[in-house]
């Protein structure tokens, strides 16, 4: 029973406001990812859930309890720090056992729990080593082991994969997913990496400047970004964005009539993901190929469309020449209010 609920949580350090009225409801057993740029307040939010920071205003609930004024050790949470924070003077075994030892659990129970965790994470052969004698990936596993050995209701991960190299990171992503299935706890995972967020999260929370921008499943967030910030942040390469002028059924972008299936009047920002830029003979708009980016199983062409740039995802097997003129059209398009950034219908 570990639903997490944040009610209008605010956090200030002196005069700087780091979290601004954050409301969040995480279901029991859900894997939720907090995503945002460095410095946006992700760690602070996580630490507020853990109890390492007191909230300046608002309430924090875990399970049925209001834990706003409860100390971290009584919140039944475990946390994996970005630095791993392994106790350097203790062996791996003692690092894992520490939480149970100070709770004076029977020895047999402790040993069993340590063994389970070690087996689960494949670190049984490291139990007698000191943290200094481990590789980065091994430390990361020990840190996770320390979190799961106690079987808490809530697991908190602060950028757990960011200190790993790319291949290991990929591997550990799968591991985390597996672990979540096995443990069925509530996972809160902080990251600045959208791929991590997209692949791991049941839902994700986008944060910017301490304000929640959007909460939703990865699919939702990708397909219907709530505002310009989310639209820019999610998706790689970034969504194409232009200033547009609508006249009823017509939309003009830099003097060209664009065929957008949504009628509107006045100025707005038009957004089209590279996926939705279709290059085909006989399409209504023309642009010049500027750069070709081939990544093996996918490719992007950067087009010069008058003064503007357009990025399009293309079949890597189709050959384009730099300087060649191509014709293109849009599939799905997004519209945003230019001044407020929020999504227009």
């Amino acid at each position: 029973m570990a639903r997490i609920r944040l009610d209008a949580v605010q956090k200030r350090f002196g005069a700087t406001r780091v979290l601004d009225r954050v409301d969040l409801d995480v279901a029991d057993g859900e894997y939720i990812v907090l995503l945002g740029r460095s410095g946006c307040g992700k760690s602070t939010l996580l630490r507020c859930i853990a109890g390492l920071e007191e909230v300046s205003e608002g309430r924090v609930h875990i399970g049925d309890r209001d834990v706003t004024d409860v100390s971290p050790r009584d919140r039944d949470v475990a946390m994996v720090f970005q630095s791993y924070a392994l106790y350097p003077h203790m062996t791996v075994a003692r690092n894992l056992a520490f939480a149970l030892e100070i709770r004076s659990r029977p020895r047999a129970e402790i040993d069993a729990a340590v063994k389970d965790a070690a087996d689960l994470l494949d670190i049984a052969h490291l139990l007698d080593r000191l943290p200094a004698q481990l590789s980065g990936g091994q430390r990361q596993r020990v840190a996770m082991g320390r979190a799961i050995v106690r079987r808490p209701a809530v697991f908190l991960f602060d950028e757990p994969l960011s200190n790993l190299d790319a291949s290991l990171r990929h591997h550990m992503r799968l591991e985390l997913k597996r672990l979540h299935k096995r443990l069925r706890g509530t996972f809160v995972h902080v990251t600045h990496d959208q791929v991590e967020a997209m692949t791991l999260g049941d839902r994700m929370v986008l944060l910017d400047g301490g304000v929640v921008q959007q909460v939703g499943s990865p699919r939702d967030v990708y397909e219907t970004p709530a505002n310009l910030f989310v639209a820019k942040f999610i998706g790689s390469p970034q969504m194409n964005l232009w200033e547009a002028q609508g006249h009823g059924a017509h939309t003009r972008v830099q003097g060209v009539d664009v065929d957008v299936p949504v009628p509107a009047d006045g100025k707005y920002t038009l957004g089209v993901r590279p996926n939705d830029v279709r290059i085909e003979a006989g399409a209504p708009m023309t642009a010049k190929v500027e750069i070709i980016e081939a990544l093996g199983d996918e490719a992007f062409v950067h087009l010069l469309w008058g003064e503007q740039r357009v990025v399009a995802r293309v079949d890597p097997r189709t050959a384009y020449d730099v300087g060649e003129d191509v014709r293109f059209t849009f599939g799905r398009a997004h519209r945003f209010d230019t001044t407020t950034g929020s999504r227009l219908p």
Binding site: G51, S71, R73, A78, M79, F81, Y87
Partner: peptide, 14 residues
């Protein structure tokens, strides 16, 4: 590092 103490705090240490 301060986070060692925080880790211990979360582990349940007074």
């Amino acid at each position: 590092p301060r986070d060692l103490e925080e880790a211990a705090m979360i582990d349940g240490a007074g």
